[in-house]
């Protein structure tokens, strides 16, 4: 198993991820899963500039990521999968056995969302989607940085 981290974070690539988690887990490749970004060259260029030289960055749509998940799982290098939307995370996880856990790392204030943790804001719909994911056996927990204690789904959903 070399998918070290599946993370929900609306900032996608930022310091906590590339340095915080990257250094702690020895991440060598980031798979950024997002339909819009996969089709947008200028956004890809911006995300690429946030990646250290010793990391690879792969863009995939949710559908592509689903079909390539077993390839990622058997890869020789350590992978972090990043998503920015709860819906995409559920679409990715459903029916893909390779993903056993989802880390909720940072979802911030926007219309209709309510605070669940200082770094987790969710709409009721998003909360119930994550809840469903947890009930289907995926370990959902919130943790912004490796040095923090993970908060289990039951405590913030």
């Amino acid at each position: 198993m070399t998918i070290e981290l599946v993370r929900l974070d609306d900032r996608l690539i930022h310091g906590q991820v590339v340095v915080g988690w990257g250094n702690a887990l020895g991440i060598e490749c980031i798979v950024l899963v997002d339909d819009e970004i996969s089709h947008s060259k200028w956004e890809q260029d911006i995300y690429a500039m946030g990646i250290p030289g010793n990391m690879n960055l792969v863009f995939a749509t949710v559908a592509e990521a689903r079909t390539r998940m077993s390839e990622f799982r058997d890869a020789k290098y350590k992978i972090a999968v990043l998503l920015r939307s709860v819906k995409d995370a559920v679409r990715l996880c459903d029916g893909v056995d390779a993903i056993r856990s989802v880390n909720v790392g940072g979802l911030h204030m926007s219309e209709g969302r309510r605070e669940r943790l200082p770094y987790v804001y969710l709409t009721d719909e998003e909360a119930s989607m994550l809840h469903g994911l947890a009930e289907r056996g995926v370990a959902v927990s919130a943790q912004d940085v490796p040095s923090a204690a993970p908060v289990p789904a039951a405590d913030f959903l």
């Binding site: 906590q16 340095v19 915080g20 200082p118 770094y119 940085v145």
Partner: peptide, 8 residues
């Protein structure tokens, strides 16, 4: 201290 952890 890693200052990337926001408020800690």
């Amino acid at each position: 201290v890693m200052p990337v952890g926001a408020a800690r």
